[in-house]
């Protein structure tokens, strides 16, 4: 028993450190590639590491108006929540560490925690910019959570109707039974629509342009983050990096759980794992590339009203249509 526990602790540590490292690398890639697309040179790939180290040694300022304990607690909550998320995701094609203790619904809730933590931290900061930012973040959450929930639930529902009795909301089950192979033509279109919805929700979930409205540097000077500095800021920074891996992995697990090892005939063994992990990294990168990097280079920031309308009408519409098509696929 104690050996299993020790093992789990080790694995947990590896996942945390690995996930953070990956997130930072992806963040570096994001900045470098975006810079290249904008005709700039861009920072070195290691820049996010430098940033975190610098933030860590900087003074941690708590504004006079702030509710100090809440203000200081929220970065920790945010980081803890995204850290926990890592344990529920099949990273690199491996079983999630806590796969047996939670499912997609839990992930949905955990995904909301960092955003809520930022909202609370923003309100606790007691600055008008942070307040405006926190209000905007709340509106954004109300806007994108609905299509996100529809997308995740539709997938689970479909699987439950195909495989009655299975743990359909468990990511392991979802990942090992890719829906693309199970659906008919109608369902295929439905899945495509759901995938599009998830891809559009991703930048909103990650607060990236065109949905970086709660932070909007030129409007509200960083919004929620306006008053954060030093260690607190570093924690939000790390949380943001990890969230990028989480969103990428979630999309990959739901829609592209395929491995290469089987195809290449190297199942099992160390080489099989290496190939699968490498392929997984590429998949996550591709998702981040199209959902975050390209989008943030190609668009201007939307206004909060425009973003909310976008999510409530077209994107919710797309995800609902996807759901209906999946349902029809079962009936026909």
């Amino acid at each position: 028993m104690s050996a299993t526990l020790l093992n789990a602790v080790w694995q947990g540590l590896i996942i945390l450190v690995g996930g953070t490292f990956l997130g930072m690398i992806y963040k570096g890639l994001d900045r470098k590639l975006a810079a290249q697309m904008q005709g700039r040179i861009g920072p070195p790939l290691r820049q996010p590491f430098f940033d975190v180290v610098k933030l860590m040694v900087k003074e941690n300022v708590v504004p006079d108006h702030a509710v100090a304990w809440l203000f200081n607690l929220m970065p920790l909550v945010s980081l803890a929540a995204v850290g926990t998320l890592l344990f529920y995701l099949p990273l690199g094609g491996f079983e999630p560490l806590l796969g047996g203790f939670g499912d997609l619904i839990l992930i949905l809730y955990l995904l909301a925690v960092p955003s809520l933590a930022m909202v609370l931290g923003g309100f606790a900061a007691g600055s008008p910019f942070a307040t405006v930012g926190a209000q905007r973040e709340l509106v954004m959450m109300m806007a994108y959570e609905f299509p996100l929930a529809i997308t995740l639930l539709s997938l689970g529902w479909y699987l439950s109707s195909v495989m009655p009795g299975a743990q359909v909301f468990s990511l392991t089950v979802l990942a090992s039974n890719p829906l693309w192979g199970l659906v008919g033509p109608l369902g295929f279109i439905g899945l495509l629509l759901l995938f599009c919805a998830l891809m559009i929700v991703t930048p909103a979930e990650l607060t990236k342009i065109p949905f970086d409205i709660p932070e909007a540097e030129t409007e509200i000077a960083g919004g929620i983050l306006a008053e954060y500095s030093g260690r607190n800021m570093a924690m939000f920074y790390l949380a943001d990096a990890i969230k990028m891996v989480v969103m990428g992995s979630l999309t990959v697990a739901l829609f592209f759980p395929y491995g290469l090892s089987g195809l290449l005939g190297v199942t099992g063994g160390i080489w099989g794992s290496v190939i699968d992990v490498a392929f997984y990294l590429v998949k996550v990168f591709v998702v981040i590339f199209f959902a975050v990097i390209v989008v943030r280079v190609a668009f201007a920031r939307l206004k909060i009203g425009q973003a909310a309308r976008l999510f409530w009408l077209p994107i919710t519409g797309i995800s609902l249509l996807g759901m209906v098509l999946l349902m029809l696929d079962r009936i026909v």
């Binding site: 904008q38 005709g39 030129t218 920031r301």
Partner: peptide, 16 residues
């Protein structure tokens, strides 16, 4: 103007 809109790509291209 592009930067104020959060459209940094356009900012960099224009200034180039």
């Amino acid at each position: 103007g592009a930067h104020e809109l959060g459209f940094d790509t356009l900012l960099h291209l224009t200034w180039n």
